[in-house]
């Protein structure tokens, strides 16, 4: 199961084949993201024709079409794509770092920390920007707390995961308590935010988030070398000129910042960071976790989930966090079936 531990040494030709395959998969996923993005511009309570959308994108639409397509749907779609990509990449980074297919940032407590920050901001009456920043800070704080409680980078992975789970449980208790005692309206808003904040996205928040991501995503892709080195084991990594402690710290910080930015944009949506790397690895059939594929799949997954959330019971919308949780559960069931067919390979 700890796939990163068994990166095989590949011959040149096999490596080229893998590379070609992952390029094809990435291209396909990118097309799918664009396609679904454009298609979902047409989805919603108000019917808008493709021609109208083309006009709106060309900046020629006015009135309700301009409002719905450019002001409401487009920012939401872009936000889902951006946050999904950030989460997908963060999941791949953390799962590599922790050498565990379930070691994603939402499982080890960062989401709970982000939620604590957001609730506290909401209860003190902060505006949307303040809530987003507080959630960013809360996620970072939880991550640093895990890092500090683990005594810096020198702790062994499984302990780090456990400490993450414990810190997450502590923050969750705090969150439950805050929601439990808050006035009804504040509690309702906080609980809704926990399940996804895509509905309330505005251009300003999206712009801030996108700007941070533009810096972080290339940085994440640049971690590729460190990931591969780490996957070979600490000694090997050292001999490749990548001190494992430094590499881990870098991966962790980039992953944490990606998670916090995704939360800033879309709220603490669960399961994207968990599922995307699995799916990406299966699609790309690569040995390690492909970062770009994972990011693209994350984007597609979150956008698809958001479409389901908006449309399944239209005009009512579901919380997107509930949809990702259900789809994530479904994915686990499928994973299990294929595993049972192949026989247990734990």
């Amino acid at each position: 199961m700890p796939w990163a531990a068994r990166v095989p040494v590949r011959t040149g030709r096999a490596m080229r084949a893998t590379l070609r395959r992952s390029l094809v998969v990435d291209l396909g996923l990118a097309m799918a993201c664009i396609g679904l993005g454009l298609f979902s511009l047409t989805l919603g309570t108000m019917p808008v024709s493709l021609a109208d959308i083309a006009r709106a994108l060309a900046g020629e639409a006015t009135g309700p079409v301009q409002l719905v397509v450019l002001e409401w749907r487009l920012p939401r779609i872009l936000a889902a794509l951006a946050a999904g990509a950030a989460l997908g990449m963060a999941g791949a980074l953390f799962q590599t770092l922790l050498r565990n297919p379930l070691g994603s940032p939402d499982v080890i407590g960062f989401d709970a920390g982000a939620f604590s920050g957001a609730i506290l901001a909401m209860l003190t009456g902060a505006a949307a920007g303040g809530v987003a920043l507080a959630s960013f800070a809360g996620g970072l704080a939880a991550g640093l707390l895990v890092y500090a409680a683990a005594g810096g980078g020198h702790v062994e992975r499984n302990r780090l995961i456990l400490i993450g789970i414990a810190v997450g449980a502590g923050f969750t208790a705090l969150n439950d308590w805050l929601i439990f005692t808050a006035p009804l309206d504040s509690a309702l808003i906080a609980a809704s935010w926990k399940q996804g904040a895509l509905a309330g996205i505005d251009r300003g928040r999206l712009a801030i988030g996108a700007a941070i991501l533009l810096a972080l995503l290339p940085l994440g892709l640049a971690c590729r070398r460190m990931m591969d080195a780490l996957a070979l084991g600490d000694d090997k990594a050292m001999s490749l000129g990548e001190p494992p402690g430094v590499a881990r710290l870098c991966l962790g910080l980039v992953g944490l910042s990606l998670t916090a930015t995704a939360t800033l944009i879309a709220g603490p949506v669960g399961f994207v960071a968990l599922i995307a790397p699995h799916a990406a690895r299966r699609l790309a059939r690569s040995a390690g976790l492909p970062l770009s594929t994972s990011a693209l799949f994350g984007a597609l997954f979150l956008l698809g989930s958001d479409c389901v959330a908006r449309l399944l019971f239209a005009p009512r919308s579901l919380p997107v966090g509930a949809v990702t949780a259900c789809l994530g559960g479904l994915y686990f069931v499928l994973l299990l079936r294929s595993r049972m067919r192949r026989g247990a390979d734990s």
Binding site: D106, K194, Q195, F271, G321, A322, A325, G328
Partner: peptide, 8 residues
Amino acid sequence: AFCLGVGQ
């Protein structure tokens, strides 16, 4: 996380 998401 799944159960809490659905419950919520």
